[in-house]
Design a protein around this nucleic acid. Structure first.
Lengths: 329, 329
DNA sequence: TCGACTGCGGTCAGCTCCTGACCGCATGGG
DNA sequence: CCCATGCGGTCAGGAGCTGACCGCAGTCGA
């Protein structure tokens, strides 16, 4: 389990790390037990515990026959020592979190994922990939996105690395872009890459779902300042002024109190407001981004009386699904 | 960002940890840069890098003016040094992974979550909680489960701690159980706790979704051997012989090739097989656990011609949803 | 109540190791 | 070509670590 037994080379540092690892694996350890494991005297263990405490890790200790050491929750998170399976679980969890099934932490998840993927041994990366593949069918909403791609982009931003990738513009034309990535931004239902386009010599925002194939890294990026300083604001501006079609939100009226409905609708995807006329037992649900078929289905799952207010396409979609299900019996 | 500057107390160990942290934060660092950050001479940095290499961390270095150090992927995962936001993202990701939206790694996720939650500073735990709450509405399938509760149970198993909790049996009677938890098992769509029941003096399996309130920890558990050794097998036996109602799987016929459908249905939730009569352009999808309303909805989302084969309740459900959507227009 | 086991911390001698300083070398980019 | 970088050797002083011993104070079980 990654214990190495390198105690030969850097005795005390290696031992401190090993000690931390042991303390994370099990909650309670007695001094002699630890001394035995680490092949040092009990006195040294006591001193090591003191050192870890000095480093900020809160190690509690209890005297008595049932006593021992335990690592508690402190002011800072200690270095996490994960075994293989746990690391895979973390990576997979971050991928789903990044794909937006959570709301509010997508960008952080991508950052953490980028960090993790860089350190992940190959054998584990393959396992993550395999699990991710069987899972991708779960992507329920919004454009399908690729967590690996996001992690790659985020790494490039963090490490100031140039990227070259194929990009399909909205009119369908493919082009190859040489860029210096600066930020990955999540708009609530779409991912964007803010980068300096070396050929066009200007800032551009790229829709991540339109990037084709694997980006190729190449060379260092120069330090540049995004106009306005805030990547998110930059994306906002460029898609507002831009040629982006603003997605049409879907609106559905539900016969139930707003609070009851809000509790069952993910806040990141839709907002719930009491119906003006009949606020006590009806409310209106509006999607955050554009409407989508899955949104409709979520609403149907509520098992409450619905009324599609718009747009007409949403109503048409409702009819289609209703017909499908009706015909299935 | 958790830098501490405790370089006073345990110089080299603290510095090694800090160095590892820096190398995880950014991909590329030059020697003088690191020396400056850690307030030591460049020579010491070189030596520290060597030490880390000796500990098994693959640090690559490039000479030349564009050179520097970078931490690569090695045989083992180095201790992960996460900042606050990243730690929260990891915790949230693990919670969703544990709630079964992934398939195949639920139990590992719970283990990792237990480890993480024990180390998580309070302020971060609160943030995780908050995010988890707004998210819980997303639980789409199976009984609603509480990731916190699972983590608590997993901790107790790992640490051999007794737990007392309220339990609602299937006939509705509430009782208080004093247990020594031994394993948390995921059956594919339900969670079970395998524990020694101190009052009944025998092994029991508890359905986690029937545990009421927060379990209370109390005292050490004695080491005991689960009959048969394998907790999963034990759960299998006890729910098979047991009074558990085996859930009725749902079966739906889809007019499309099996491979095409399989790619869009999470393997952990349902199996896809070619239709005997008409294998080339029809297949039958069978749920792993019992059928559920969300399962039906997944199928409707495929936008393919469906036929509900059974059970009758599933057909009735389809009719209900179809009616709801039909009436919504 | 007692004893056994635990953790705590002080002290000491010996020895490991760590550090900063200096050196020359190899490498890669501008 | 020149520069900045990483590499590794050596040296001397000093800091740090280790194991051994001691007595103390909690806590649990008998």
């Amino acid at each position: 389990m990654g214990c190495h037994d390198v105690a030969v080379s850097v005795p005390t540092s290696a031992r401190l790390l090993a000690l931390l690892s042991l303390l994370q694996q099990r909650r309670e350890w007695s001094g002699p037990e630890l001394a035995d494991r680490l092949e040092v005297g009990p006195r040294t263990i006591r001193r090591d515990v003191d050192k870890l405490r000095g480093l900020g890790y809160p190690i509690e200790a209890a005297p008595g026959v049932a006593g021992g050491y335990r690592l508690g929750a402190g002011a800072d998170l200690p270095p996490l020592l994960l075994d293989d399976a746990e690391a895979v679980a973390v990576a997979v969890g971050l991928r789903t979190a990044a794909s937006g099934s959570i709301g509010g932490i997508e960008e952080t998840s991508v950052r953490a994922l980028a960090k993790l993927e860089q350190l992940l041994p190959d054998r584990l990366r393959r396992r993550v990939q395999a699990l991710g593949d069987t899972t991708s069918a779960f992507q329920i909403d919004g454009p399908r996105i690729d967590a690996d791609l996001l992690a790659t982009l985020a790494s490039a931003c963090r490490d100031h690395e140039r990227l070259r990738f194929g990009y399909g513009a909205k009119d369908g034309t493919q082009s190859s872009r040489e860029t210096e990535p600066h930020a990955v931004v999540h708009s609530g239902w779409r991912w964007y890459l803010v980068a300096w386009d070396l050929d066009r010599e200007d800032w551009r925002t790229f829709r991540v779902d339109r990037i084709a194939g694997r980006p190729v890294a190449g060379g260092r990026a120069r330090a540049r300042e995004i106009p306005g300083g805030d990547p998110a604001a930059f994306v906002q501006r460029s898609i507002r002024q831009g040629d982006e079609v603003t997605p049409v939100p879907g609106r559905i009226r539900v016969r139930a109190r707003a609070e009851a409905v809000a509790a069952r609708v993910p806040a990141s995807r839709a907002t719930v407001a009491p119906d003006g006329d009949d606020g006590d037992d009806a409310c209106i649900v509006t999607t955050t981004g554009g409407w989508s078929r899955p949104f409709l289905v979520w609403m149907a799952l509520l098992d409450l009386e619905l009324e599609v207010l718009g747009p007409p396409e949403l109503a048409a979609e409702a009819r289609t699904i209703a017909t499908r299900l009706g015909a299935a019996i």
